[in-house]
Structures are given as C-alpha cells and as structure tokens.
C-alpha cells in the first residue's frame, strides 16, 4: 500500500516535472519569437521598457557584483597561494585566479547574484500582476504579456549579464592582484605579465557564452514562475523563492554541460 502510494506520488511528481519542462520550453520559444521575429511583423520591441530594465538589472547590480567578485578573487588567491607556496611557485597564483575567474567564477557568481536579485524580481512583478488581474487587463487591451513584459526583461538580461560578467572577471583578477602585491611580494609588472600570458581569448569567450545562456535561463525561470503564481500574496512569495532555487539549479546544470563541452572540444 505504502509502496503504491510512494510510486503514485513520485509518478505524479515525474509527470509534473515534464509538464513544467514543456510549458517552460513553450514560454522560451514564445519569448524568443517576440524578440527575434515579431519586430519584423510590425510588433516592435519596447525599447524604453528594455532600457529601464537594463538599468535596474545591470547598472544597479554593478556594486554588489564588484564587491563579491573582488572578495572571491582574494579568496582564490589566498587558497592558491597556500598550495603553491610549498613549491615556491606563488607566481602561478596569477594563472589560477585569472583562468578560474574568466572560465568559471565570473559567469557563475554573476548569474547567482542576478538570479537572487533580478530573477526573483521578475517573478514577483509578473506574479503580482497576475494576482491583481493586470495580466488579464493587458490581454483585453490586445497586448500580449510575453511581448509586453517578458521580452524587454529578457533582452535586458541577455545584454546586461555578459557585461556584468566582464566586470566580475576583471574585479576578481584585481582581487588576486591585491593579495599578490601585498602578501606574496610579487612585483606588479610580473603578476600582470603572468596573467596576460596565462589567459587565452577562449577562456574569456567561453565564460561570456556561458553567461549569455545563464541570462536566458534566469529570465525564463523568473517569468515562468511569475505566470505560474496561484492564489494571492503568499503564492507570489512561494513562486519568488522557487524562481531563485530553480534558476540557480538550472544555471549550475547548464554550467556543467557547457564545461564538459568546452573541456572536451576547446
């Protein structure tokens, strides 16, 4: 009996998982078509709203992204130095910090911060609009909520997250610099040259490619959770939390896939 219950329960969960996955892919396709196809059919993108979102998601995140990346750069440098000191090879701290920031940590940290800061905001905004029938009002005005709300936010994300990632990369490397110069007594110019030599264009570019896809994931999960709100204020709260958890999870999964791909091919 309990076995059957468990099976039924997990069966339902599994079905629900596929339902969500299918609905989310459909939302993603519609959003992409509103961004890339609709403008050619006389439904222009709302650039004003897009710009507002760019400021809100991007410009306002610069301080927090910078501070956290700087700290992470410092941390990696310290951990690397701890290991490399034993071999008297502390100069390779530059390689480690540079490569790990650009390939992995810059994109990941940015994505996680933006998921918590802006993905949740998208879910909360759209969810609140659903609860107060504003989405219905949009529809009765012949305005599509995806074109009207999701497209501007998604474009803003796709532009702004890679930009923030570049900032995170550089600030993180600067964190390593500070430690190297102050604690490891490495000359500025030596550290700089070492970093420049260690970093390849592809390290940088694979990071940016990843961050572009992270942006899509965060925007999509936020919007999907917003549209999915049931009930009132507590429904909005639940969806907002879920959006953060799900988007971080999906970002990490995507990161794993990309890394496997880049690791084996590039």
């Amino acid at each position: 009996m309990t076995l059957r219950k468990t099976a039924g329960h997990s069966g339902r969960k599994l079905v629900l998982f596929f339902v969500h996955a299918a609905r989310m892919s459909s939302l993603a396709l519609q959003s992409l078509s509103w961004i890339f196809l609709a403008p050619f059919r006389g439904k222009p993108i709302r650039w004003g709203a897009t710009f507002v979102q760019m400021v809100r998601i991007g410009v306002e995140s610069v301080p927090i992204v910078s501070v956290i990346s700087f700290c992470v750069g410092l941390i990696i440098a310290m951990q690397a130095a701890y290991q490399l000191e034993r071999f008297g090879a502390t100069i390779y701290v530059a390689d480690l910090v540079g490569v790990s920031m650009c390939r992995e940590l810059g994109p990941l940290i940015t994505a996680i911060i933006i998921a918590g800061r802006s993905g949740s905001a998208i879910a909360a905004e759209i969810g609140t609009m659903k609860v107060s029938e504003e989405l219905d009002a949009l529809q009765t005005m012949a305005l599509n909520p995806i074109g009207f709300l999701v497209a501007p936010r998604m474009i803003a994300m796709m532009v702004v997250v890679p930009c923030l990632t570049v900032i995170a990369d550089f600030v993180g490397i600067a964190g390593g610099f500070v430690l190297a110069i102050s604690n490891l007594k490495i000359a500025f110019i030596a550290y700089f040259n070492q970093t420049a030599e260690a970093l390849l264009a592809k390290d940088f570019i694979t990071g940016l490619v990843k961050s572009f896809f992270f942006a899509i994931i965060i925007a999509q999960v936020g919007a999907y959770q917003g549209f999915n709100v049931q009930g009132g204020a507590e429904g909005v709260g639940r969806s907002t939390t879920t959006s953060v958890v799900v988007s971080i999870f999906m970002v990490i999964l995507a990161d794993l896939m990309f890394t496997m791909l880049f690791y084996s091919t590039l």
Binding site: T128, M129, S132, E133, E134, D136, A137
Partner: peptide
C-alpha cells in the same frame, strides 16, 4: 474590471 486592475507600476 471589478477591481479596476490598473497597472500599479
């Protein structure tokens, strides 16, 4: 709409 449904933003 019965509750108005104005856009609050």
């Amino acid at each position: 709409f019965q509750n108005g449904a104005l856009f609050n933003s």
